[in-house]
C-alpha cells in the first residue's frame, strides 16, 4: 500500500518534471546558445565564450531598439497607471450596469486577437498623420497594458476597507485629501505590482508594435523578429534575450514572493 503511494508520487513528480523541462526548453536553449563561441546557433554550445555578451554591449542598433522598448514601456505604463487608478475606483463605486459593461471593455485586449487589432489600427490610422508616431504606439501600449493594471488594482481595492474613507471624512478630510492620504497609500503596493507586470508585457510585445510602429522606431522584439525571418538565429540576439530572461526571472521571484502575482494570469 505504502509502496503504491510512493510509486504514484514518484511517477507524478517525474511527469511534472518532464512537462516543466518541455515548458522551459526554449529558454534553456536561448540561454545555452548565447554562450556559443562560434557565429551560429549551437546548443549545447560547441565552444564556450562570452564574446556575444561583449558584442551585445556595444551593438548600436540593438541597443537603440532596446532603448526604444524601454521608452515605450515606461511611458505607456505610467499613463496607464494614471488612467487606471480613477477607472478602478469608478468600477468599484460606480453604478452596477455601467461598471460591469466597462470592465468587459477594459479587459478585452487580452481576449481579442492582437493580429486583428493590429490590422484594424493600421488601416484606421494609416491615412492620418499620426501613423508611425511615438504617441500612437504609446497609446496602443496603454490599451495593451490596461487589463493587467485594472485586474491588479481592482484586486487591491477589493481588499481595501472603505470604512477608512468614512473615518477620514469624519475627521475633516475632503474627498481629495481622503484619496491622497488614505486610499492611495494603501493601494499603492497593488499599483506597483500592476505597473511592473504591465511594463514587462509592453516590453515584450510584438504584434501590435509590428503593425503600427514607425519604421525608424523599432522596438527590441520587432527587431529580433525581423532578423529571425531574414537571417535566422544570431547568438548576439540570444545574449540580449538571456539578459532579459534573467531580469524577468529576478523580478518574477520578487513579485511572486511578495504579491503572489501569478494569480493575475487569466
Amino acid at each position: 500500500m505504502k509502496r503504491q503511494k510512493h510509486l504514484s508520487r514518484f511517477l507524478l513528480a517525474l511527469a511534472a518534471i518532464v512537462v516543466l523541462v518541455f515548458l522551459l526548453a526554449p529558454i534553456i536553449a536561448v540561454i545555452g546558445g548565447s554562450f556559443n563561441g562560434e557565429g551560429y546557433f549551437s546548443f549545447p554550445p560547441d565552444t564556450w565564450s562570452v564574446r556575444w555578451y561583449q558584442a551585445a554591449a556595444s551593438n548600436e542598433e540593438h541597443l537603440s531598439s532596446l532603448a526604444h522598448s524601454l521608452k515605450v514601456a515606461s511611458v505607456a505604463t505610467l499613463i496607464s497607471v494614471v488612467l487606471c487608478i480613477p477607472a478602478s475606483l469608478a468600477l468599484v463605486k460606480g453604478s452596477r450596469k455601467l461598471t460591469s459593461f466597462m470592465k468587459k471593455i477594459f479587459m478585452a485586449p487580452i481576449f481579442l486577437p492582437a493580429i486583428v487589432w493590429g490590422v484594424g489600427m493600421l488601416l484606421f490610422f494609416g491615412k492620418t498623420n499620426v501613423r508611425g508616431s511615438f504617441g500612437l504606439l504609446v497609446a496602443a501600449h496603454v490599451v495593451l497594458v490596461t487589463p493587467y493594471l485594472i485586474r491588479v488594482v481592482g484586486s487591491s481595492l477589493d481588499e481595501f476597507n472603505f470604512t477608512l474613507e468614512d473615518a477620514a471624512i469624519s475627521l475633516g478630510a475632503t474627498p481629495a485629501q481622503t484619496f491622497l492620504r488614505v486610499t492611495l497609500p494603501l493601494i499603492s503596493p497593488g499599483v506597483v505590482v500592476g505597473a511592473v507586470f504591465g511594463f514587462m508585457i509592453s516590453f515584450s510585445e510584438l504584434i501590435i508594435t509590428l503593425f503600427i510602429a514607425g519604421s525608424n522606431f523599432t522596438t527590441f522584439p520587432v527587431r529580433v523578429y525581423s532578423e529571425m525571418r531574414t537571417e535566422g538565429l544570431n547568438p548576439m540576439v540570444l545574449a540580449y534575450s538571456t539578459i532579459i530572461v534573467v531580469v524577468v526571472l529576478v523580478i518574477s521571484i520578487i513579485g511572486e514572493k511578495c504579491a503572489r502575482w501569478s494569480r493575475f494570469f487569466s
Partner: peptide, 26 residues
C-alpha cells in the same frame, strides 16, 4: 510558479527563438 510564468512574461519572441534553434536542421 515563477518558472511556469517565466515563458509568458519573457515574451513570445524569446520562446520562438528557442524553438527555432532547437528544431532547426542544425
Amino acid at each position: 510558479l515563477v518558472l511556469v510564468t517565466l515563458p509568458l512574461i519573457s515574451g513570445v519572441v524569446v520562446q520562438t527563438m528557442g524553438w527555432y534553434g532547437l528544431l532547426a536542421a542544425y
